[in-house]
Every structure is written in C-alpha cells, then in structure tokens.
Design a protein around this nucleic acid. Structure first.
Lengths: 143, 143
DNA sequence: CACATTTCGGATAAAAATATCTTTTTAGTA
DNA sequence: TACTAAAAAGATATTTTTATCCGAAATGTG
C-alpha cells in the first residue's frame, strides 16, 4: 500500500504542519527523533518533498523546513505521489493488467473497493484539514 | 499492503483452486506461465504454502500441487498470512505504536478503515466462495 | 566580506525482497 | 529393484528499498 518511505514522509509532513509556518522553521535534526525516522533518510525525503513543492525550505542560518499556507492546502495524496509515484497505490491488488474499475476482477470487490475509499480520502483531505482536527483535540497524532 | 510475493501466492492459489482437486494435480511448470509468475519463485511460494497446509502436494511421478476440499474452505487471509506474516497487513498505516482500532490516530479513519474492510473481506471469504462466482460466470479472474 | 549554519546533491553502503540454480528426497512404475 | 518424475531444501544471485556519508551551494549575521 504505502512504502515505508511514504509513511515516513507522511509523518514528517504532518509534524511540520503542526509545528511550522513561514515564520518558524525546523531543521531535520529537530524533527527526526520526534517522529522516529532515521535522520539522514528523513533529510533525503524532505529534500524530495521540497523539490516537488509539497513542503518549503530555506537554507542557511535560521533556515530549515516548513509548510507554507499553500503547502498546507495540498491534499494528502500529494505526499504519497511524490515519494511512491502515482502507480504504486493505484495498481490492481493482483497486478492484473486487464483489471480496473470498469472491468473488475474477482478480487476487485474485496480489495480494490477498500483501496478506492482510501485513495479517495487521501485525495479529498488536505493537510490543513487533518491537522485542524488534531489542534481542536478531535483526534490524536501520536507521531 | 500486499507484497508482490503475496500477490503471486494469491493468484497461484486461485488458479489451483479453479483447476485442481485431490484427483487432478498440477506441476509448477504448468502453472507459472498461466499466471505470469517466475517459475522458480513460484515453486518456492507453493512449497511454503504447502508447508503451512494452505495447499496440498504430492511428490514423485503423477505428483504436483493441488487444493483439497479442506484447502478450498480456508479463508483468503490464510494465503496472505503465510506469505507476509500476520503483522504486515494489519500494522498501522503510519506504523504508529500507540495506534490501533481502540485508540485510533488522526489518519486511522482515512486509512485504517479502508484497510479494515479489506481485511474483514479476506477473513470472511473462502477460496471456494471466491471461485464459485467465477465458475458461475458472475465474476472474472483473468490471471 | 568572512564565517557559521543549514539545505542540496551525488556517491555509496546495508538490508530486504525477489529470483534463480542445484542438489536431495520422495514416490510411482516398468 | 532400477529408473524417472516431481516436490523439498539449500545455496546463491540480482534488484529494489532503505539508509548513511560527505562535499557543494546558499544565506543570514557580525
């Protein structure tokens, strides 16, 4: 479903969404242990996300990574797509070529359905919306 | 979600379910190209499934792999559990320790939910039930 | 401008997953 | 019993994913 890398990325972005904005950035070294992701690997992932404008960054002193308001309005799916590509999440459960939503295989109802719901949720929920609930105490994000 | 290996295993078992029983077995070499899985790799997977009594086998001339009636009554989840282990499919989307169905994290509703449906379906559907629909022409299995 | 700080980019390493090959064991059959 | 066919088991190779390291580029600050 999601690669380990994508999970890391998701956690990191949500963490940054909660703790940063254009005026207060965070360095990799202040993030990695909070979300339990290897430091150097996290750095790479953040670079990648930054390169694709899912998150923002600033070099030099007082620099770091952060989420602009624009970033926060992106749907969650963007995080996954940058790290895992567009195919991985959407490919048929059994990697059957002939199988898609129009021409579903026997397993498609059991499987693809559940996956479709997930994808739809990722597409329709923005980073901001997700963390809003956390800030309001409606849900928890024990990263 | 499912590893490539688990997908291979799923395809192979469904194929065997459709084409074998205690009286007519199939050899690896008659299966692998039908479901598009590397021969030697498939052999390994079938051995593993056989070892865990998800499928049956007989050595020597006239031998091969097959699904007994008992095998066919197993829920689909067994195939996944033997190949991927019990954890992989069930682990929290973000691998967050504190997160489970009782104490869901912010993403759990978006994600875990869809996954729970999938798991439930795998648990509640037997191999036999799935292929029955295929045999009846109700669904397709273009392996 | 010099310096410290921090991301960026490239190269490399380690681990896990996937795949192949070879030998051994088992079982049917002439 | 000897032979052959097939799965089982073990060893090894390849590829992909995950992880680390290091020098280069950029930027704020004295």
């Amino acid at each position: 479903m999601l690669s380990t890398s994508a999970k890391y990325a998701m956690k990191a972005v949500l963490f940054l969404a909660l703790h940063t904005d254009a005026k207060s950035k965070m360095m990799v070294k202040d993030v990695y242990d909070r979300i339990n992701v290897p430091q150097s690997y996290l750095a790479k992932l953040l670079q990648e996300l930054s390169k694709h404008d899912v998150i923002s960054s600033a070099r030099g002193p007082k620099g770091g990574f952060f989420l602009s308001d624009q970033n926060k309005n992106l749907p969650l799916i963007k995080i996954v797509e940058v790290i895992d590509g567009e195919q991985r999440l959407r490919s048929c459960m059994l990697s059957i070529h002939e199988c898609d939503n129009e021409n579903p295989c026997a397993l498609h109802d059991l499987v693809g359905n559940a996956n479709s719901i997930f994808i739809k949720n990722l597409e329709e929920t923005t980073i901001l919306e997700l963390i809003a609930d956390v800030k309001d105490g409606k849900s928890v994000l024990p990263l």
